[in-house]
Amino acid sequence: MEKIKNKYGESISIKQILAEKIIYLVLLLLIVLVIIIEPKFLSFTNLKNICAQSATKIIIALAAGMVLMVRGCDLSTGRMIGLAAVVSASLMQEVNYAYRMYPNLKELPLIVPVLLVVVLCAILGTLTGIAVSLLKVPPIIATLAMQLILYGASSIYFDRPPYGAQPIGGISSKVIGIGTGYFKLGNIQIPYLIMIAAVICVIIWIIWNKTKFGKYMYAVGGNPEAAKVSGVNVELTQIIVYASAAVLYAIAAVLEVGRIGSASNTTGNGYEMDAIAACVIGGVSMSGGIGSVGGIIIGVLIFTVINYGLAFIGVNMYWQYIVKGLIILLAVVIDMRKFAKRK
């Protein structure tokens, strides 16, 4: 069998590399297939759209990935985003919009609602973290409970006079500008969303790879017992993970409001499943300790390309579900094969 050296000087077989990277091949194959069916797919606009659509999802997936990495599993993702979206949207409506939630509210500087939801989510995330780490509630239960609480809370906030249970619209043009505007570089338009996501990715990368907290996160996920013996404050690390994931959700929620132009109590519904699926496709281990920023970005991109590409060529909607399901299954099968017994 053919062998090559990897960057660490270990020899690995080409077959092994293929097995590990096959998910990228799948992505490539999908793109090629879409292009064959619809050559117009090959355009800068589509690339821009795909990246812009992925932008908030990447932020969300990174947050969900952090939680997976410490052997958690966050089911409250979508509802946390929903709450942050509803609260921030209600404070970011145009002053002259007819159906304002707070008709007499003066225009607030953008930073006020953003900080408010960031702090709110940080507190809620800390509570989840405490439940998981100190009270030893299994993550899936703690976040499920949080999911219900958050949905109730955001619905109560949302569904009240004067215009209750209506999507909160009339979002300030500044916010819409962030969500849909772009930076012009010659002929190229770079959406602000992509730039914001890129900055956040860099920050997260630094945190994961260059800080003590990041290393502790991998350690806690890799082997909590060993981490404890190594002097890592396992509980604190878990709490910080849940809290910072929540902060990312809050930021993503504000960006979603800008992107969509409205918010309701259904905003964010089901995002946790997309996020977890993207993480899994991107190589984050469901049993903790393994995962990278790059992998998660690729995972999200694959998901978006499927969504966007299938809609672009006009595949029957029911088939789109089947294709998505198959891709997730494929990703996990490949992932499992890496650790399979017969080495």
């Binding site: 590409g309 809609a311 006009g314």
Partner: peptide
């Protein structure tokens, strides 16, 4: 195609079609 009654999902589908 379906937008699942949802603003974000409808926007994502529409992005592709406007481009096309």
């Amino acid at each position: 195609d379906t937008g699942m009654w949802d603003t974000a999902k409808a926007k994502e589908k529409m992005d592709a079609w406007v481009s096309k």
